[in-house]
Design a protein around this nucleic acid. Sequence first.
DNA 1: CAAGTTACAAGCTTTGACATCTGTTACTCA
DNA 2: TGAGTAACAGATGTCAAAGCTTGTAACTTG
Lengths: 199, 199
Amino acid sequence: MPARIPLDANAILAATEEILRRHGPDKATVVDVARALGVSHAAVYKHFPSKQALREAVTRRWLDRSRDALAVIAADSAVPPARRLRTWLHALLAGKQAKVREDPELFAAYGILAAAHSSVATDHVADLLGQLTAIIADGAADGSLRTDDAAATARVVFTATAKFNHLAHAAEWQNPGIGAELDEVCSLLLDGLHTRMSP
Amino acid sequence: MPARIPLDANAILAATEEILRRHGPDKATVVDVARALGVSHAAVYKHFPSKQALREAVTRRWLDRSRDALAVIAADSAVPPARRLRTWLHALLAGKQAKVREDPELFAAYGILAAAHSSVATDHVADLLGQLTAIIADGAADGSLRTDDAAATARVVFTATAKFNHLAHAAEWQNPGIGAELDEVCSLLLDGLHTRMSP
DNA sequence: CAAGTTACAAGCTTTGACATCTGTTACTCA
DNA sequence: TGAGTAACAGATGTCAAAGCTTGTAACTTG
């Protein structure tokens, strides 16, 4: 009987993240989470309406951490927008590579939610697109990037780099040449985005 | 007892394709194929060393048909290379959409082979890259597309359009806006590839 | 002897009984 | 009355036994 801290949503999230990491998304049960907290599984259901909601909350927290790390790069106005775009796309890839390697269980949990069309996945993509839009808008503002609509261009850039950001390609992120490949795609895209010397 | 045509590799391939279409890759057995041909399953093994080899042969034939259809577009020198590139990428997408819709079982069989790193999949990609390289080389030759190395550029274009050509995105090909999205990516890529007016 | 068959071992799937998990409800207790 | 528990029904998952499937080998036949 551990001295019981009163149960709150945060303690449940932390315990769930731990269980998810240990057992993986297929084996992690809410009974496991409750046992780790020293309560009955029904107690967990007082704080979260379903196992699905619990998983989403854990995954959202996990994704928000990487979103925040990328936001620092996106907002760094000391770096010219074209270079910032390239750096940001590389950081996005590096972050995903690290997650697959170091946190495969949580990554798998995210994959399951994305496949189920959970809002966690679409919201995360929307966050990333927002950052990309901000970089491109900065480029449009200082005249270094040519675009009519920063948000639309951001979507196109995100689509063209799908191989480096979409879950479906996770297996390919372990290939050694992947960073160089992203660099080449970036170069071609930036060639298209740079302001022309003449019409 | 149907009047038995002497068994040959081609008859086996046709029967396998039919069985694969009917039962799907998970349920299709070589006993089924043999039954459809009115022979024992061991007879099939006289012509193909394994079930895997049989499946690969069927899938290869199926992929070669679409490769040939695309080759006509790639080789059409009446169309300027930039426009030909765009048309080819759209045709590739349209062909895949049609296959997923009309031949989901054979498409699934292809997916299984690709996941198993079969040479069928890598060879098919190599064929497609060859066609793309030819288009880009034509553009380099007539001065309309800027590239140092047509094959390398073809790889970059293929990567940047992964969302429209890679199996992993098959589910997204049914979205209504997908053609327009490809168009936007093409435009950005072609902006990058077009010869500049000045350095 | 080319083309096919029957018979069989090893390895996978199905199957069905059994256990566990999810989510709810009626209850307890400070 | 808010926070948790015990008990439960229905869905889901597990596991071993039985039945197919794959691939091989020895055998048959025109």
